[in-house]
Design a protein around this nucleic acid. Sequence first.
DNA 1: TTATATACAAACATGAATGTATGTAAACAA
DNA 2: TTGTTTACATACATTCATGTTTGTATATAA
Lengths: 207, 207
Amino acid sequence: MVRKTKEDAELTRQRIINAAREVFLVRGVSKSTLEHIATQAEVTRGAVYWHFKNKTDIFHAIRDQVFLPLIDRMDDTLNIESSDDALTQIEKSLCDTVQELNENIEMRQTYEIMMIKCEYVDEFATVLQQILGNCSSITQKIQLAYERAQSQNILVGSHSPHALALDTHLFFSGLLHMWVKDADGTRFRFQAIQLIQSHINLRRKTN
Amino acid sequence: MVRKTKEDAELTRQRIINAAREVFLVRGVSKSTLEHIATQAEVTRGAVYWHFKNKTDIFHAIRDQVFLPLIDRMDDTLNIESSDDALTQIEKSLCDTVQELNENIEMRQTYEIMMIKCEYVDEFATVLQQILGNCSSITQKIQLAYERAQSQNILVGSHSPHALALDTHLFFSGLLHMWVKDADGTRFRFQAIQLIQSHINLRRKTN
DNA sequence: TTATATACAAACATGAATGTATGTAAACAA
DNA sequence: TTGTTTACATACATTCATGTTTGTATATAA
């Protein structure tokens, strides 16, 4: 019962990716074996080795599938054409991401794997650099939004958009980390949106 | 050439711990073998197994040695008796921690291991819960400081100390993560202190 | 229709890593 | 001074993960 059609093959490829995500999440990346993944996907290691070079290859497939699109989405939400003021734009962008994490299981799992189920050494060290790169590009987008907020005259005090953007980015980075670590949702998840609103509110000039 | 004195034994125990820290840092916790650690410590696996039950045991030894004291230090800096105003106290506390990370190699290495060289599964999952516990105790301390700041009338606007504390904690958590990931120091480390000052400045009422 | 490439499964060979068991010399207590 | 315990080193047994090779049925192209 081998040699399926091309569509069948792509389907098992997806099954392997999904299986790997589950396995990585439970056992951590380095303690997950290709045997574990194959079993979860209900195939043999032969199938896994046919579709992927090795475990790292699967890891990258997972990452590419849901992690990169998220970055893009954040980028989009921060784009200029919008009826909202710049601060609201930032707020919505952050809230959107949290919403997405709430609704999208695969994205949530992937984030969790990337943050606390993976050791960034050897071949994974480069992934860290990519993440850092994404971070600074997002920070730049946020900074632009803060500059718009400044010219819209809705910012309190006189703080540099650069510093504000970095602060927001660090805040959000911390939030995502806590969000992921708070698996039972009792500490952070339930109030994540509220925290974002407070964060933005702190920058908004009161009438 | 065996059976050293008690002091000698304690010394090799320390050598093993230090060796493990170096090895964990380079290879990640799960890819580090007791053989690697033994070699780095210039002993045999026999010595390692004499002093420690297994790899997890060494991990906890490392953690207890430098991670827990840091938490305590932060706690101390936020104590009430101080000539500084409450906001300055928070600022100093955060800056102190960053300073310590800059100066104390072992602490820096330990932090890096805990954050990006360790997979929080199985026996390590409990460590995560401990970290979360420490976090909320620190957040509480920060909140108390913000409450003092409020009564000292040095806060802008009218934001709840609770929200401010959480925001600061998430900011700092994000900062530490970036600090660790920015190994070459070109992105975050050089401006960490400045970012903390901006963060606090954002909350301080302007005269 | 047939040859070939595809999509796997199954078997094999190798290399670690772990834990344990055993050996041993020197410190220390009596 | 001698027996015992300590602080390891060495050897051994077992398990496990990886990568590769081989086998094979079938889709697909020619």
